[in-house]
Design a protein around this nucleic acid. Sequence first.
DNA 1: AAGGATGTCAACCGCCCAAGT
DNA 2: CACTTGGGCGGTTGACATCCT
Length: 234
Amino acid sequence: MEEIIIKKGAWSPEEDQKMKDYVMRYGIWNWNLMPKFAGLSRTGKSCRLRWMNYLRPDVKKGPFTLEEREIVIKMYQQLGNRWSAIAERLPGRTDNEVKNFFHTHLKKHLGQKNIDAPVKSRARPIPRRTKKKADKAQEKPILFVDISETWSNKSSLMISPEAGSSILSSSSIITFDQNENFDMEKTVILDSNPAGTTHHHHHSSSDTLSTIDSFVDTTSFWLHLLNDAHRLIV
DNA sequence: AAGGATGTCAACCGCCCAAGT
DNA sequence: CACTTGGGCGGTTGACATCCT
């Protein structure tokens, strides 16, 4: 097994570019696996943080406006140190940025007299997580691809000729969970199969599924194709 | 001019939670 | 039920910039 040195600290412009290129092409599917495919020697966590706080196209850069400042103060009085909740009220600002802004600009310059928090640190009157995974999936359908070593036990790729749309005269691929029924919404149209291998399986009913055993060998290829294709339908 | 003090903020860490197994 | 996993959260650190004497 090859030893991979995980890089830490500041991101270089080259790393940023790799990340941007990758996400633009393939989207975000799994933070832990993504750096490997993107050619980054970083942890998934590090990648996620960099993307969320800096590389994401909708992050607002530059100093806080007066309005934003007022919102931070007001929300801090209401919510305390729930930075991510406060950041939701400030489009383009991240929790990290709000937290930094508060500590460096507000806490000291205003003093506690004007910005009393209603609750002590760690107290969470409102559950931190209000969104469930199902809710999020509804907001934006996400293709889930499981490529763990136990791949074949958990889930499979399926190709269903019937699912082909008129857009492309090709086979379709979906991902699925064992308990999940065929879902046309998650159908992905592909042009071709990897490495010219034949993975076409015909199904007469929607719950007939086939496992592609050689998946692991062509994981990268498939994931890239899936992500490309996924982008077509989202 | 110099170098110590202070400020800024990107990125890390440990912990937490929801969902899956 | 317990355990694992992925990702989200807030506290904190430390490199670098700027200020101050």
